[in-house]
């Protein structure tokens, strides 16, 4: 055990020892921070779509519509991990399709489909994990990122998603495209991550 560790723990204990009483851990219900408008929303899928669109995430419910959108975006190389054969066929019509995400092609691959670990209706967030999304870079570096969200994996609330976090070294909630307002408070999308964030609900 390092001395720094002991020193810090002994200072912390010494600081807390004179307290006549300590603040108890508050008891609160899981839904305490739910927005007041949430109760009226009964359909999680519809709510997710509404919230996602509000934060700038495009939602598609069929592959053809999603592929048509990509076609309008002048995409050159799209990464589609197997086994989405129908999607591969659709995209092959207008751009190169690769099932390998190679580091040497980070700047070339300008669109990527990756599976997700679900979504959150309350906030319109997409959940990515290392288990579901094998390459973190693939879901981040391309200008267009389309997460594949399974209908059955949409959590209704943020608290639900927190309670159901799988054991995974890295979970990330993606709520809209990458953005900044650092320059004069002006909102710009696509700083380091995707400038166009989308999801395909299957």
């Amino acid at each position: 055990m390092s001395t720094a560790r002991e020193q810090i723990f002994s200072s912390v204990r010494a600081a807390l020892a004179p307290l006549p009483e300590r603040t108890p851990r508050p008891v609160f219900s899981k839904d305490v921070a739910e927005p007041k408008w949430l109760a009226a929303e009964t359909d999680s899928l519809a709510l997710f779509q509404k919230r996602a669109e509000a934060t700038g995430t495009k939602c598609f419910t069929d592959m053809d519509a999603c592929a048509s959108w990509l076609r309008t975006q002048a995409v050159r190389v799209v990464y589609i991990p197997a086994p989405l054969t129908h999607l591969v066929a659709l995209c092959s019509e207008f751009c190169e399709v690769t099932s390998e995400y190679s580091r040497t092609r980070v700047n070339e691959i300008d669109a990527a489909f990756t599976p997700s670990a679900g979504a959150i209706a309350e906030s319109g967030s997409i959940i990515l994990s290392d288990e579901s999304t094998p390459d973190r870079l693939a879901a981040l570096a391309p200008w267009h990122h389309i997460a594949l969200v399974s209908r059955a994996e949409i959590h209704r609330t943020i608290a639900d998603a927190l309670a159901a976090m799988p054991a995974d070294p890295n979970l990330i909630w993606v709520t809209g495209p990458s953005k900044t307002a650092d320059v004069e408070g002006i909102l710009i999308q696509g700083v380091h991550g995707p400038g166009a964030q989308a999801c395909l609900i299957l």
């Binding site: 927005p35 919230r51 934060t55 995400y101 580091r103 309350e122 906030s123 967030s125 290392d130 094998p134 390459d135 973190r136 870079l137 693939a138 943020i158 976090m165 054991a167 995974d168 070294p169 890295n170 979970l171 990330i172 909630w173 993606v174 709520t175 809209g176 495209p177 990458s178 953005k179 307002a181 991550g193």
Partner: peptide, 24 residues
């Protein structure tokens, strides 16, 4: 902080990446 319901990227890190993964 910014008037957002959630910040765009909320990341939960729970240890080093799996050895069978190319990134992380």
């Amino acid at each position: 902080a910014t008037g957002q319901q959630l910040t765009v990227y909320t990341e939960f890190i729970n240890g080093p990446a799996r050895t069978d993964r190319p990134s992380g």
